[in-house]
Each structure stands twice: as C-alpha cells, then as structure tokens.
Nucleic acid binder design. Structure first.
Lengths: 196, 196
DNA sequence: GTCTATATGGGGATAGAC
DNA sequence: GTCTATCCCCATATAGAC
C-alpha cells in the first residue's frame, strides 16, 4: 500500500483481468474477447496485462481453471445432496445447470480453442469433475474399468446436453434449460438402468 | 471465360474459398483461420472474398452448412445399414466417427461462435440429422413426444462423446476414437433399454 | 515490481478504379 | 470480379518512469 506517487497502481490487476474477461465474454463471446478491450475497461494500457499473463491464451487458461472449479463444485454439491442410485443423475443435472448459469466460463473451457496440453492446470482443475461422477458410479458397478466407462458415458451425456443447450439446438430461454435438465436426469437414469 | 485482360480471374472463388477455409482450419483451428491467409493461398487480394461473402462469419456459415450435410449423410447411411433396435446406436456411432473424420467441419459447426439464428441455412442443413435419429426412435416409442425426447437424448449423448473426444478428454489417437465409438454404441443401447 | 509510452505487423472491412 | 488504397482494431514487444 501507501502509493509512492500519483501514478495509478492497480491493487490486483491479475484478478481484475480475469473478472473483466468473464464480463466481456458474456457480452461478446470468446471470439470477441480482446486484451485491449479488457485493458481499456480497467483503465490500464494494453501492455499491462503482459506483466501477469504471457499472452491472451494464458489469461483464457486462468478463466478455464475457474470454469473447471465451478463445474466441479456444482457437480460435487448436487451429487452429495442426493442418495442412492440417483446420485449420478443429480451430478449430471448439476453439470447442465452450471453450464447454463455460467455460460461464458463454459464457453472458455470448450470453445476457446485452447491447447489444453499446454495448460496442465486446466486438466488438474477438471479432475474433481470426473471424480464426482466416478464415486457414485462405483456404487453401481464394482469393477473399476466398468465404473470408469459408465462415468465417461454419463459425463458425455451431460456434456452433450450442456453443449447443445448453449448452442441453441434445444431452443432458447428457461423452458429449454428446464427441459434439458429434466432430460439429462431421465437419460442418466436410463443409462444406469440399461447399462449392459 | 475468355479473360478480357491480363488481370487474373478466378473460376469459382466462392467454392475455392470454402475449400481453402477447411484446409486452413484443419491446420490452425477455427480461431486461427483468417480471410487474409485464405486470400493469399488463392492468389487473390484480401478484398476479393467480400464480393462473395459479407464477412468472415458468412464464409464460416457456408462451411457449417457443409458440416451439417456431412453429419446428416453419415448418420443416415449408418442408420440405413442397420436393422432393428440397433439403428439408433449405429446412427450415434456414425455421428462420432464423422466428427472425428471431419474435425475442422465439426469445429466450425460448434466452436466457431457463429450466431446460428443469423444463418437459417445451417439449421435447415442440420434438420436431416435429427430426422435420421427420429425415424428409428419412432419404432421404439410410438408416442411422438416421447420419440422426440428419446431422439434428443441420444443425439446429446452422441454429441457429448464427439465433443469430448475432439477436445482430448478421452485421450488422443485412434484408440481414443475406437473407445469413444464403442462407448457411444453401448450408451445408446443402454438408453434405449432403460428409457422410462 | 507495476504500469506507461510507443512501435511493429497483421487482420477485418470499405470505397472507388479497372 | 478483382485490384489498390485506406482505416481502424488488436496482439505483442521493448524501453523507461516510478
């Protein structure tokens, strides 16, 4: 603290950049996001972000980590709030609801064209998502390999619903979200019931 | 034909642009695609494309139409080559295989950030995809609303597998594709078997 | 260690000539 | 139908003020 001059200093530019990035992406989409516009909004020059992020993608990667954390939290909470065989369905519905509630975050995670092998933090943050599905799956299938396959199948079904919902393929508005989460629950139950 | 001067004229710049766009996207991803680079490859100036497409997105929309047509064809063919209750599973597996085989097209369709409400052609071209799933679904569920829901569930499961596969969430390489298509078949059968 | 000032090069898009 | 020329925005790099 105690700024030594009249020069403007930002308290925590790094965090501020992440926040304003999410705002901008909500308004214009990932493709429309620019570091220049983010800098302008924060009253900082275009060069300032480069003291915190190597490039545009590294900032987006930070947003993607936040996205993974949100998804993991939502899925874990929903699964924990339910008991019995419906825990998988609850987790899947939580995935879809979270994607809809945090559209810009979800977009960065899957539509930003990030090379995720360059950012292991994203994978690490996403790990708990799979875990939240795997735990209930193990109560349904004892064999580890089988539980793993069941998990991936349910995650894919949830992801497909989330992606197509945000894409508009299921229509727009709250009814579309409602129908999609319902169907996600239904389909997850069906997968569990019909799994070979 | 018969060029009136030494000035270079392209035979069918519009079609050539669509083709070179797919090439470029295959090399650098949708985000990395630029009209300038496409123009350079075709030996025309950067202004030339604007006589055929209002903007960059309109060219991408043309690619997206092609993508929908590919998906529709693949899904229809696979479904037609199979009989009985496995037709839905065959269609779903065809969806995943087609996405993997035509990665750049699939990316444009779902990761280009296109505002599809601005391009009804894309929706029109995608219609037959849903149709290819709906026909076998009707043989399983007579009630139209129910068949419709079952269709959406299976499409979402297939789409989720395709998207996560291309994202690398299931690993890379031919084994990942093989595992994903197998799982898509398995999960579709499970959905059909367990559908409420 | 954080930000400013400034410069380079590229890409999207438009206007008017041929 | 294509070109030239032009404008503005953006990503990125470097040097320097405090």
């Amino acid at each position: 603290m105690t700024p030594k001059s009249g020069r403007y200093h930002h308290g925590d530019l790094r965090a501020a950049l992440v926040d304003v990035a999410i705002e901008l992406i909500a308004e214009r989409g990932v493709q429309g996001f620019s570091l220049a516009e983010a800098s302008r909004r924060l009253g900082v020059t275009v060069a300032a972000p480069y003291k915190h992020f190597a490039d545009r993608d590294e900032l987006l990667a930070a947003v993607a980590v936040k996205a993974s954390e949100h998804l993991a939290a939502a899925v874990t909470v929903e699964a924990a709030a339910t008991n019995g065989p419906d825990r998988l369905a609850a987790a899947a519905a939580g995935y879809v609801r979270c994607a809809a509630a945090h559209r810009p975050l979800f977009q960065v995670l899957f539509e930003a064209g990030l090379d995720k092998s360059r950012y292991p933090e994203i994978d690490a943050a996403a790990q708990p998502i799979a875990e939240a599905f795997l735990i209930p799956a193990r109560t349904i299938r004892a064999d580890p390999a089988d539980a793993h396959e069941l998990t991936r199948a349910v995650v894919a079904a949830a992801h497909g619903h989330a992606a197509l919902l945000l894409d508009g393929a299921f229509g727009r508005g709250p009814e579309a979200l409602d129908a999609a989460t319902r169907r996600t629950t239904t389909v997850t139950r069906a997968i569990v019931a019909g799994w070979r």
